[in-house]
Amino acid sequence: MSLRRSRGYPATEAGYDGYDEYDEDLAPTPAEPVRRSAPASVRVAALVGYLAGLALIAIGAGAWTVWAGGDQALGVDRMGLLGADLRDVGPAGGLVYVFAGLLVLAVARRLHRGRQWVRVLVVAGCLLSIGVTLYVGLVGRGGVNVFAGLVLPVVYVVLLNLPTARSWYRDRY
Score class of each variant (00 low, 15 high):
Leu82His: 05
Gly140His: 08
Ala73Leu: 15
Ala63Asp: 00
Trp67Cys: 05
Ala58Phe: 03
Gly90Trp: 05
Arg166Cys: 11
Ser2Lys: 13
Glu13Tyr: 08
Gly83Gln: 12
Trp67Ile: 02
Val144Glu: 11
Ala63Ser: 11
Thr65Tyr: 11
Gly137Asn: 10
Ala38His: 00
Arg115Gln: 04
Asp25Ser: 08
Thr12Cys: 14
Gly143Phe: 07
Gly62Glu: 01
Leu86Ala: 13
Tyr156Ile: 04
Gly137Phe: 03
Ala148Met: 14
Thr29Val: 15
Tyr50Gly: 02
Val122His: 04
Leu95Val: 03
Val151Cys: 06
Ala27Trp: 07
Ala27Arg: 12
Val34Gly: 06
Val118Phe: 04
Ala63Met: 04
Val158Arg: 10
Leu160Ala: 13
Leu82Arg: 14
Arg7Trp: 02
Thr12Asn: 08
Thr29Tyr: 12
Tyr156Arg: 08
Gly53Pro: 00
Leu128Val: 07
Gly94Thr: 00
Glu24Trp: 12
Ala58Met: 03
Val122Cys: 08
Thr65His: 14
Val136Ile: 14
Leu111Asp: 00
Val66Phe: 07
Leu86Lys: 07
Arg170Pro: 00
Leu160Gly: 05
Arg119Phe: 00
Val118Lys: 11
Leu160Cys: 15
Pro153Lys: 14
Ala31Thr: 03
Ala100Gln: 03
Leu150His: 09
Asp20Cys: 12
Leu81Trp: 03
Tyr135Arg: 10
Met79Ala: 08
Leu127Val: 14
Leu159Ser: 07
Gly49Ala: 09
Leu121Glu: 01
Arg7Asp: 01
Ala14Pro: 00
Gly8Asn: 09
Gly83Leu: 07
Gly140Asn: 07
Val44Pro: 00
Thr133Val: 08
Val146Tyr: 10
Ser37Cys: 11
Tyr16Ser: 15
Trp168Cys: 12
Trp67Tyr: 13
Arg115Tyr: 01
Val96Trp: 11
Trp67Met: 12
Asp20His: 07
Arg35Val: 04
Thr65Val: 06
Val96Asp: 04
Gly80Trp: 02
Arg78Val: 06
Trp117Gln: 15
Gly80Asp: 06
Arg172Ala: 15
Arg35Trp: 08
Val132Met: 08
Asp25Cys: 14
Asp88Leu: 11
Gly137Gln: 05
Asp17Glu: 13
Ala92Arg: 06
Arg115Phe: 01
Tyr22Pro: 01
Asp17Tyr: 15
Ser6Gln: 07
Ser41Glu: 02
Gly143Pro: 02
Asp23Leu: 12
Ala100Glu: 01
Gln72Arg: 14
Pro91Gly: 15
Val42Asn: 04
Gly131Thr: 04
Val76Gln: 12
Gly18Val: 09
Ala84Gln: 10
Leu54Asn: 04
Ala45Tyr: 00
Met1Leu: 13
Leu105Trp: 02
Ala148Tyr: 13
Arg172Gly: 07
Val154Ser: 10
Val144His: 08
Val76Thr: 10
Tyr9Gly: 07
Asp17Trp: 09
Leu26Arg: 12
Thr164Lys: 12
Asp23Glu: 08
Val136Ala: 09
His112Ser: 06
Ala73Cys: 02
Ala52Trp: 00
His112Asn: 09
Leu105Met: 11
Leu74Glu: 03
Ala58Asp: 00
Glu13Val: 12
Gly149Lys: 09
Tyr16Phe: 10
Pro39Asn: 07
Thr29Met: 09
Arg170Trp: 13
Val122Gly: 03
Ile59Met: 05
Asp25Gln: 15
Tyr169Phe: 14
Gly101Ser: 05
Ala40His: 11
Leu160Val: 09
Gly49Arg: 06
Tyr9His: 15
Gly94Asn: 02
Arg115Gly: 01
